[in-house]
Design a binder for these strands. Structure first.
Lengths: 206, 206
DNA sequence: GTAAATGATATAGTTTAATATATCATATAC
DNA sequence: GTATATGATATATTAAACTATATCATTTAC
């Protein structure tokens, strides 16, 4: 097969970054100047993309293409892990709802020059993706999403964004208090089974 | 300006790694499976190379292609700088002589399955590239080089390698003692304790 | 000086990424 | 249910990487 396993590792990182940012392939296509059809091929590992395409996509996704010495790879990985969404420790339903929220936020900020609360909210959701949320918090997320959907359709004002923001903030605080040692013990595995996507799982002792 | 400035940054890193390892474009071509003419174009920034080519070249040069979050780039850079030859603090003549030495060593280990002193010597030279050597040490380097040239042509035995190794080691110790504050950013680590458990650079499969 | 190695370049041919559109099935939102 | 958004896929065209080979001017080694 022509497609290197190493290329897939990179394209999967691209895809994860795109989804984590709530961008559709078409939205990414517009910003990066790369056709959606081509992004589809890239993410499915069907092409051996050129460096300019990789850089164009990475730039939009706040990523940088770097050449790191093999000897320094472990150290770099530990840094990257601490600043990226990394694995998904939450329930699949929760993960999906968070992505949906992120996506809705992106759609709103695309329509109107949203207030600064919007950016704050996006950051909050991004942080929540690092924690492990139980299904008991799904209702709160869905509620926030429905309100934002209404805002997006101009059926609600921007003051509702503020309300959602405070709600999410209190949720985050509760979660952070409850389990602030989530990232510390990576050995703890959730009850539900993450059957796939277990590719990046090198736990190292500092 | 058809080639992105970002691509050049990467290709220049490739070239620096190749020279630092004492590999010619043809030697790199053989190991990576990329024609020498293409490597020339890549290094001169004349092509928008594909990811597979980049990965193939990087692998031979002990480099890894990574996507790092823009936010984590400074931290990653500081790590990379501390493990790579980085800038050249020495005289151009000294830098060139060190490269020549590295190249000769590579040529020898290509001809014969050199003894382990050869790998040690390569590491020593690699470390010397981190220090600032004055021109007063040029003679010692040239002498080492001439001896190794003779070894390469089977006009001298492998026991001479050992002699060169001890000479270089004493040179290194002298340099390390003399100026252990060679660069401001690497002042944290004392120059004497040059750890030898570092990864061996030459891992060729016959 | 002679010989070998180096890097750069040129040419011609093959492969393939990239683009531009369009279509399709399937989720999701109203 | 209707409409919209999503991702995957198809086709045709263009641009360019990649390959193979050869040449050339410099530099370096003996």
């Amino acid at each position: 097969m022509k497609t290197h396993y190493k290329i897939e590792e990179i394209t999967k990182t691209l895809q994860a970054a795109r989804v984590s940012k709530g961008l559709s392939q078409r939205a990414l296509s517009q910003r990066a100047g790369v056709p959606q059809a081509h992004i589809s091929k890239i993410e499915s590992g069907a092409v051996d993309l050129r460096l300019s395409s990789l850089i164009a996509l990475a730039r939009v996704l706040d990523l940088e293409v770097a050449l790191v010495p093999r000897k320094a790879v472990p150290a770099v990985q530990s840094i990257v892990r601490s600043s990226e969404p990394a694995a998904s420790p939450s329930t699949p339903a929760v993960v999906k709802e968070l992505q949906r929220l992120q996506h809705t936020l992106g759609a709103i900020s695309e329509l109107t020059n949203g207030p600064k609360e919007l950016a704050q909210l996006q950051r909050q959701i991004r942080e929540l993706q690092h924690f492990r949320l139980a299904d008991e918090h799904l209702a709160a997320l869905k509620d926030a999403n429905s309100v934002l959907q209404a805002v997006k359709n101009h059926k609600k004002g921007t003051e509702d964004i503020r309300r959602v923001l405070t709600n999410v903030q209190t949720l985050r605080n509760a979660i952070a208090h409850q389990t602030n040692s989530v990232s510390a013990n990576t050995a703890a595995r959730p009850a539900y089974t993450l059957d796939d996507e277990a590719s990046n799982g090198s736990s190292q002792r500092p």
